[in-house]
Every structure is written in C-alpha cells, then in structure tokens.
C-alpha cells in the first residue's frame, strides 16, 4: 500500500508555500504595499510599480518551474510517478 495520504500532505505543503510567495509578490508588493515601496527607486522604476508591472511576472514563472521540479521529486519519493513507457 502506498502512502497516498503522506503524498497528498507533501503536495499541499508545497502548494501552500508557493501560493504564499505568489500572493506576497503580487497582491502584497504590487497592490497593498505599493505606496510605501514606491518610495524606493531603482533606476527609473519605483519599486512598487516595478513589482506590479514587471517583478511579479518574473517570479510567477520561476515559481511554476520550482513547483514542477519539486513535485517531480515528491512523485518519485512516494513512488507514484509515471513510469517510463506508461
């Protein structure tokens, strides 16, 4: 019997961690905290504005790849991955 419960728990933990980052960079830095962050300027970008129109998107891309890689590891660890040729 495979540890389906353990696998699901590990999956949820990873998803929640990723979603926290997802929320903080977009809704946090890009919207709720945009005014204080706009006081910091990097080259021509105000930081809050940068997160809203550039930064959050780069982080989203990174997040999905990090998730996909970690998830593949978890799949193998719990031996529920798709075997080659399946």
């Amino acid at each position: 019997m495979k540890d389906a419960v353990g696998y699901w728990q590990a999956n949820l933990k990873l998803v929640v961690a990723c979603l926290i980052v997802w929320f903080v960079v977009s809704f946090g830095f890009g919207i709720l905290l945009v005014h204080p962050l706009n006081n910091i300027q990097i080259a021509g970008y105000k930081l809050g504005f940068w997160f809203a129109q550039q930064g959050s998107m780069y982080i989203f891309v990174a997040l999905i790849f990090i998730y996909a890689n970690k998830m593949n590891k978890i799949d193998r660890q719990f031996d529920v991955d798709e075997k080659e040729g399946a």
């Binding site: 998803v15 979603l19 809203a52 129109q53 959050s56």
Partner: peptide, 29 residues
C-alpha cells in the same frame, strides 16, 4: 489600457499571468 490607466492597469498584467500559477498547481496535473 496601460497607456491610459498607467499603474492601475497592472491588474491586467498580474491577473493574466498569476492565474497560471493557480492553473499549474491546482488544476492542470
């Protein structure tokens, strides 16, 4: 829309990309 709304149009940028994070983690697989 960005040209005329400036910062406010960020909702479209973040919204239409951030959804993929949800899609990848909660539905697609």
């Amino acid at each position: 829309l960005i040209a005329f709304q400036g910062y406010d149009a960020s909702a479209y940028l973040m919204g239409w990309t951030g959804g993929y994070v949800l899609l990848a983690m909660m539905l697609a697989p």
